[in-house]
Design a protein around this nucleic acid. Structure first.
Lengths: 291, 291
DNA sequence: TAGTGGTCTAGACCACGTG
DNA sequence: ACGTGGTCTAGACCACTAT
């Protein structure tokens, strides 16, 4: 059970203790198209002193954050675009600029948006280098990180096998798209990926589209299919190359390879991709920072 | 060249525009022993309009953060202890509580301290589970993450080989401590570590001390040697087991192993440890989250 | 009851980027 | 000159923990 829409934790207005600032009428700004003045939403009920504090307490800025996230998800503000200024959002949601700021702070910390002083706050996109290398951690021993060439071997729809279905939180047999591809760096085959995508989100994805696309796959997904990868979780092991992998990666059978099993999530922590990668780590390494 | 002590970026007092709040006399609180009222430090010089903005601008809260970090580093507040309350720090540094709060926010984000509502802000320690598993990412396929038994093979002082010296930012031949050990999980040898520590920081570290110590090695380092690992950077590859590793880890020669080369840093981003680990990933995996 | 961190507001001023 | 995010302050109230 989620709770947002009707979970007013109290009745009266929130922090605006002094100026009676809660009349929900339209502000001076024209209400931007797709978001009619939200039914805000108080966080502190000045209940009688002995009343139990509201069980589903949520700070105002968290509620604002959820509203902004919803607008991101709905595509009201698209990747690369600027979102409304803090002042605008403050007046839209009828809260102070400081509260909006704290909400955006968290969204920025989660890399959903990026602030640029003097310019505005922008929806992040997989076209930016910074974002790209958050999801590609393979670094060459010599030289700068770069994006290799992608060679698509296969792209087809099929029914999800049990384990993939489990990871994607769908039913066995539900539609998925399977992609197999090889990434080549400086002429050397380095990564063999096997990818499963939620069928429902990727209608019309073909090998041609993948081949024509220059740039990160996630940028294509975000631009053409409205599915934005927000975070991912990886399980990493060392394995020995089987015959197929050995041939495609031009290494001897039995060579040690880095196995990276990734599950990627979009808004609301919904899994949309399972990716199994085999990396040749002779001239590259997987970079990770613990902090 | 570091800059802290004398790097006043301007002349007059900062934000306290209205109340003349800048006289640096001792506050009402007795100045805590080891930190005499710091020579604060203005951030905005209301220079003539055409003057170039100060080249080495640093926000007040960053300066406060640096001061707090210095106190952490000097051991004024030890791991596990509570640091002074926000109000106390505000009056010590002659800034508002909000500024201290922002400084502590960043320190908490970097895991140097942890806030606990109603109790205070505490210096983090490698004794806590949360911290332990930030630095041990090996998770069993079945069951909960846990700390295995450590078997120390060797602990000796020697002169740093060239590559280790380079990573530790010292000179070849400088003193280092080398440790070799095996970690065992559920009776299975799983990790073979080769560790180099800065000799200067670890005088008196012996195999006995390591063997007697129950718990994470970093907790020993922090408690007995005053050296706290703050962050680390890892390069991960897949390699084949050589004879030594194969024997110690009870796997066939040539088995794929995860190679993890870690450099760990203490305050001020100074490297203090190089650690080369070989992980058996048959029944464990290396967990990583991209976000 | 007292003290701590957590939330929220309001207003001032600054640095940055663009007209 | 203007609008954006960034910093700083001051004060109120809330939630949590301990005594």
């Amino acid at each position: 059970m989620s709770s947002l829409p009707t979970s007013l934790t109290g009745a009266t207005a929130p922090g605006a203790q002094e100026s009676g600032a809660a009349t929900p009428g339209a502000g001076t700004q024209p209400p931007p198209s797709s978001s009619p003045a939200q039914p805000l939403v108080s966080q502190t009920a000045p209940q009688a002193a002995n009343a139990v504090p509201s069980p589903t307490f949520s700070p105002l800025y968290q509620q604002i954050k959820a509203l902004i996230t919803r607008s991101l998800q709905s595509g009201e503000w698209k990747p690369g675009e600027m979102i409304p200024s803090e002042m605008e959002l403050a007046s839209r949601y009828k809260v102070s600029q400081g509260t909006v700021r704290k909400a955006i702070d968290e969204l920025a910390a989660e890399n959903l948006v990026a602030r640029r002083q003097g310019k505005g706050t922008f929806v992040t996109t997989h076209h930016e280098d910074v974002v790209k290398f958050r999801f590609l951690r393979l670094v060459p021993d010599e030289g700068e990180p770069h994006y290799g060439a992608s060679h698509v071997l296969e792209c087809k729809r099929l029914r999800a096998p049990a384990e993939i279905a489990r990871l994607l939180d769908i039913r066995t047999g539900d539609s998925v798209v399977q992609i197999r591809r090889v990434l080549t760096f400086s002429g050397e085959s380095t990564v063999l990926d096997e990818i499963w995508l939620l069928g429902a989100n990727f209608k019309g994805l073909t090998a041609e589209k993948l081949t024509e696309w220059k740039g990160p796959m996630y940028a294509l997904f975000e631009a053409e299919f409205g599915t934005r990868m927000i975070r991912a979780s990886e399980k990493i092991r060392a394995v020995a190359a089987d015959e197929t992998a050995a041939e495609l990666l031009s290494v001897p059978v039995g060579s040690p390879l880095l196995s990276v099993e990734r599950v990627s999530y979009t808004y609301g922590d919904r899994p949309v991709e399972v990716r199994r990668g085999l990396y040749v780590t002779a001239r590259h390494y997987y970079q990770n920072d613990l902090s």
